[in-house]
Design a protein around this nucleic acid. Structure first.
Lengths: 121, 121
DNA sequence: ATTATTACTTGTTAATTGCAAGTAAATTAG
DNA sequence: CTAATTTACTTGCAATTAACAAGTAATAAT
């Protein structure tokens, strides 16, 4: 199977948690969503995040998020012909998930800290 | 590196979300946590869940959850010498994360449905 | 026109996953 | 008590996925 073309037409169970995990159950996807919530919009922005996501994984995850209508492409804000990404309504609805995870991390891992900008996750 | 002994002494960033994902950022771990929240306590219970987690993955994830103090072992309730698992306070604190994920799944994937028991996630 | 940046893709190696089978200890059946 | 069964894993292995490095085509800047 070609890279980034993982099948999404099959589910392990009707459980909403299991189905959610089939979309973003990995170590990278929600970091991209986090970045989008922080106002980052472009490939290079996600690539520049401190966790250092490999570019092939980033491309793969963006494709998956597009296919699941969690993100969409828009013209870049700088007037160039390049594209940017933004969260759809479905993607924005992940905010409580990210918030709960952030709260849990902050509460139970004292070495973590928020390093967040305006739109606060 | 031996199975189940993934290094946990290093973090990608101080972000609480990234650190949370280093613990449960995969397709299976939160399903075990879900099962624990539903009152399931033993290896065979997790193994019997509809998603069908492979036993080697299950053993690996339980070990990881133990090391991160998300779950702990207790004597089995049936009086035998076998062990069971239960969530620690830290593990129980994941309830809002699971709830947010369940709500999101239910809201945006119409083919999902809750199939939950008493303690409702 | 030349150089640099962007947004990826490709190749290669390392690690992880999933399936099947195996195992040792504990429990149950006879 | 002995034998069969169940439990809670472990092991082997093929297949998938991840990580790192390098490459590339299309803009964009100088």
């Amino acid at each position: 199977m070609p890279a980034g073309k993982k099948r999404t037409d099959w589910r392990r169970s009707p459980c909403p948690i299991a189905c959610s995990l089939d979309i973003f159950g990995d170590r990278w996807t929600l970091l991209i969503v986090r970045d989008l919530m922080l106002g980052r919009t472009r490939f290079r922005d996600f690539s520049a995040s401190p966790e250092g996501i490999p570019t092939n994984i980033l491309a793969d995850r963006l494709e998956r998020l597009l296919q699941h209508n969690v993100v969409e492409q828009i013209p870049a804000a700088d007037g160039t012909k390049r594209l940017a990404y933004r969260l759809t309504e479905k993607g924005n609805a992940l905010r409580p998930v990210l918030k709960a995870m952030r709260d849990w991390g902050l509460a139970w891992d004292k070495s973590t800290r928020v390093m967040l900008s305006p739109k606060s996750v």
